[in-house]
Computed example of a mutant assay.
Amino acid sequence: MSHASYELKAEKRERVGKGSSRELRRNGRIPAVIYGDKKDPLSITLPYKDVTLKIHNGGFMTTIATIDVDGEKISVLPKSYQLDPVRDFTMHVDFLRVSANTQVTVAVPVHFINEEKCPGIKIGGVLNIVRHEVEFHCPANSIPEFIEADLEGFKIGEGIHISHIKLPKGVTPVITDRDFTIATIATPAGGVKEEEEVTTETEE
């Protein structure tokens, strides 16, 4: 279900600071930090090419990686990365140390399936996506690559809520106080053939 884990070879950073970061980037490496798990943050450098490739291939923020720092293999999950706004260049990555029982919060994309079995869409309704991704708490070692929203049977005016989605074991939505909407089947601007006016419920 999730992207295959991968390994990156890192070097410890001796000097930290603006000047050394620039020098690193000239040498095809980027600075990164591994933190968490009640250990001191570890400053490292990674090959620019490898990291950029992973970011562009998708699933970067939801895939556990192994970072080999001078022979010590550390399991991590990318927490954030900075891009140079002008050149779309990866400037820095923060990694979180994870173990089998680490709980993480991640944004997971929603895939919509069975549009062709959706009565509302068949008569001209429009799929109005309220959330393209949903934030979940889940174990670091079983982050879903995506969740599936099944549109089969939904009519115009109906909403697909989080309760309609079958979630993998241990995966829980961050929002727990309501059954929030993922998408609605909306009436198109020009109305539909022989269909009464329906009010759709939208959610902020």
Rank of each mutant, 00 (worst) to 15 (best):
M1H: 03
H3D: 04
H3Q: 02
A4R: 06
S5K: 03
Y6L: 15
E7I: 09
K12H: 09
R13N: 10
R15N: 10
R15I: 13
G17S: 03
G19H: 07
S21A: 15
R22F: 14
R22C: 07
R22G: 13
R22P: 10
R22T: 03
N27R: 14
N27L: 11
R29W: 03
I30T: 13
V33Q: 04
V33Y: 01
V33D: 00
I34C: 08
G36F: 07
K38G: 10
K39A: 12
K39E: 11
K39W: 04
P41W: 13
P41K: 10
S43F: 13
I44L: 01
T45N: 13
T45R: 01
L46I: 01
P47C: 02
P47D: 07
Y48C: 08
K49V: 11
V51L: 02
T52Q: 00
T52M: 09
K54A: 06
K54C: 11
K54S: 10
I55L: 05
H56P: 02
F60N: 07
M61S: 13
T63P: 03
T63Q: 08
V69G: 14
D70K: 06
D70N: 07
E72W: 09
I74A: 13
V76N: 05
V76L: 03
L77A: 15
K79Y: 06
R87C: 03
R87I: 08
T90D: 12
M91G: 01
M91K: 14
H92W: 05
H92K: 00
H92N: 00
V93A: 09
F95I: 15
V98M: 10
N101T: 13
Q103R: 04
V104L: 04
T105Y: 04
V106F: 03
V106L: 04
V108I: 13
V110T: 08
I113W: 12
E115W: 13
E115N: 05
E116H: 15
K117A: 15
I123N: 01
I123L: 10
G124K: 14
N128Y: 04
V130R: 08
E135L: 14
F136N: 09
F136D: 13
F136T: 08
P139K: 14
P139A: 10
A140Q: 02
N141D: 07
I143R: 00
E145Y: 01
E148S: 12
A149C: 05
L151Y: 06
F154N: 05
G157R: 01
G159L: 10
G159D: 12
G159P: 09
G159H: 00
I162W: 11
I165E: 12
I165G: 14
I165Q: 15
K166P: 11
L167W: 12
P173C: 06
D177S: 14
I182C: 05
A183I: 09
T184Y: 00
A186F: 06
A189N: 05
A189P: 14
G191H: 07
V192D: 02
E196V: 08
E197P: 07
V198A: 09
